[in-house]
Amino acid sequence: MQRPILAIAEDFSKYEMLVYDLKKIFQQTIRFSQDKPTRKKDMLWYENLLEHSSIKDQVFFMAEQKKVDQNFYKFQLRCPSYCEKPIFRFDSDGSAHQNKSEKLKLQSVPTPHFNKFNNKGESIAYQTPELENIDYSELQRIGDFFVLFCEQCHLRYIDGTFPFIESGDTRIFQLPVQADDLLEGIKFPT
C-alpha cells in the first residue's frame, strides 16, 4: 500500500529543494550497464552520485531499462538519507498511476508520466503537455524523454548543458527482444 511518506510531509521545503534546485552530474554520457546489484535480473542499470547546489545529503541519479524492451525504462532521483523511495521519477511505460486525491474521472495518469510527492507526502503522477500529446504508434526516443526529465528536476552536466543518455544494447542478452508490441513472439497455446 502506498502510504504517505512522513519525511516529505514533515519537511516539504527540503523536498522541493532536493528535486527542483540545480543538480550536476559528472558524466556527460550515461550508459546502462548490466550489473544491477539487486534481484531484478531483467533490468539494465545505471547509478551515479550528483552534486547538489543547496543540500548536503547524497542525491543519486538512477536509471533502469528492461533488457527485453528498450522502450521500457525509468529515470529517478534518490536521496536515501531522506526517504527510502525515489523522490522523483519518470516512467516511460508501465501501469497508469492512480492519483487518489483527484476527482475519480481525473485519477488515471497513464505512462509515460512523472511521479513526484505533494506536501502531504502522497505520490502524485503527472504528465507535461509533451507527454499528454504523445502518439503511441510512433517510437519514442529515450534522449527526448531524458531531456524532459532533466528540465523537470533541474539536472545538468557540470558545464551547464544537458547530459546525454544511450540506450543499452539489448541484443547481447540473447533474449527475445520485444519491439513496441510486448506480446510479439509469445506463444499462446490453444
Binding site: 497508469a96 498511476h97 503511441y136 513496441d180 508490441d181
Partner: peptide, 19 residues
C-alpha cells in the same frame, strides 16, 4: 496501441494505486 497489441487501461486498481 502497441504494434499489433492493444493495451486497455481499465478502472480496476491494485493496492499500490495502479490501474
Amino acid at each position: 496501441y502497441r504494434g499489433n497489441t492493444l493495451e486497455i487501461i481499465t478502472h480496476y486498481t491494485s493496492p499500490d494505486s495502479k490501474f
